[in-house]
Computed example of a mutant assay.
Amino acid sequence: MVRKNIIISSLLLGLVSASPLHQKRQDLPFDSYDESIAAGADSTDSPPVGDAVPQVVETFNADAVAAEVVEAVVDTTPAEAQAAADAPPEVISVNLLKRDDPATGCITRTFNGPAVREPDTPEAFTSNPAFASAANDAIKAANVPAGYAAVPNFVNLQAVAQDKSYITYVSSRLGSYDVKQCAAICDSTAGCTSFNIYYERVPLEISKKTQVPDASLGCPGLADAASATLIKCAFYGMPLVATSAKQVYQFQGKAFKVVYAGSTAFTKSTGPTVDGFQGPVTFGNAAINAPAPVIDNGYLRTQTFGTNVPFAPELCAASCNAQTEYNAKHNVNKGQACVFFNAYIIYKNNKDGVFTCAYYGIPYGTSYAKNKGQKDNSGNVWTIGSSYGYYLPGNYVAKN
């Protein structure tokens, strides 16, 4: 499957003063969230089984995406902004995964994990004590990578992460169940915020062309076919949570069962710094809730991004600066400059996080981080995670 990386910008410019709802309170961006999810519906959300069709990932270029965000803000006229709620969101292509075309043939795969042979069954694989021991050792304080934290309730599972922010994975580069090596790769991968390390049971014999069993090439993938163990690290642009783990069994060839063990997730424990802004100030699982009426208390607008755009507050910073230019040029939002933004992830019914930014002409601190979620008229529960505040110099507020 080709991964489509998109950015959705829900431009609410001018709508603050036009909407009575926004005058009363600051709501979460329900509509633009749903647009983000719909636009990313066909995105890849987890690594392929085995090494099926190797992947090459083009680097996420935050500067290029930020330029698109700025252009979308600055070039939007007030008249167009007033109608933005009825217009389709802007979708900007960012990058694609490319796949190669290897030669044909049937081969014995290479693998980097210990074989489970006596018995060689899915049940023996998932209950292997060595896999559980490696996973549980990885979350001990001395072994957790610097700058990361183990995801609560996502330790030593038989399930793997599925999230639309999936970037890529590595296997052959790993010589063992090494979380520090995975963290180093994540740190060097643009847009990476979290990773999932795990053992995967795969068939030993595969097609050279497709990297999966192929009966026509003499490797049918029967139920009792010999297995191999891959150690994998999959990387994601959004913080993983416990509900990201999905226990999905797969079959390859005629009947070979692929299963997982020792699956553990880690996410970065602090928000990234942003050039030109102070912070991040941690707001945890709450977003800023400006006093009502919000139009008189600095709230400018809210912006959501595509489901597989990474958690990248530098995009918010670019949009915040563009908002200042726009407001001054068009005398929108009383001409206020954007001096503070709240970057966070919004979840619908505890899944499918969407990167979101809210912009303000007045700085707010942790005492205003009160919006831990809302329930809409359809009964959906909306919650917040990984919430951070960023301030233009001279506007830093810790607690006000």
Rank of each mutant, 00 (worst) to 15 (best):
M1I: 13
R3E: 06
I8P: 00
S9W: 12
L12A: 12
L12N: 10
L15N: 13
D27V: 14
D31L: 13
D31Q: 12
Y33H: 09
D34K: 10
S43F: 05
D45N: 12
D51Y: 08
V56I: 12
A62H: 07
D63I: 11
A67E: 01
A72G: 01
A72T: 08
A72R: 07
T77P: 06
E80Y: 06
A83H: 12
A83W: 07
D86L: 08
A87T: 11
E90Y: 02
V94N: 03
L97W: 10
R99V: 09
T104R: 04
G105T: 05
G113V: 04
P114Q: 06
E118S: 13
P119Y: 03
T121S: 00
F125W: 15
F125P: 00
A130F: 15
A135S: 04
K140A: 01
A141P: 04
N143I: 08
G147T: 03
P152M: 09
F154M: 04
F154K: 00
V155Y: 12
N156I: 05
L157Y: 07
Y166F: 04
S171G: 01
S176K: 06
S194A: 13
F195T: 03
R201G: 12
R201Y: 05
R201P: 01
V202T: 14
P203T: 11
V212G: 05
C219W: 06
C219V: 00
P220T: 15
A223W: 11
A223P: 10
D224M: 12
A225F: 01
I231Y: 06
K232L: 03
C233N: 10
A234P: 06
P239Q: 15
P239L: 13
S244C: 06
V248W: 06
Y249F: 07
Q250E: 05
K254H: 03
V258L: 02
A261N: 12
S263A: 09
A265G: 08
A265Q: 07
D275P: 06
G276V: 06
P291G: 04
P293I: 07
P293H: 05
V294K: 01
I295C: 14
Y299N: 15
R301G: 10
F305T: 11
G306F: 08
N308A: 11
V309F: 02
C320F: 07
V332W: 05
V332G: 14
C338M: 02
F341R: 03
F341H: 00
N342S: 05
Y344I: 14
Y347T: 09
N349S: 10
T356G: 02
C357D: 03
P363W: 02
Y364E: 00
N371V: 06
K372G: 13
K372E: 13
G373V: 09
N377F: 15
G379K: 00
W382I: 08
I384G: 08
Y391A: 07
L392N: 13
L392D: 07
P393I: 01
G394E: 10
Y396E: 13
Y396G: 07
Y396D: 09
V397M: 05
N400I: 12
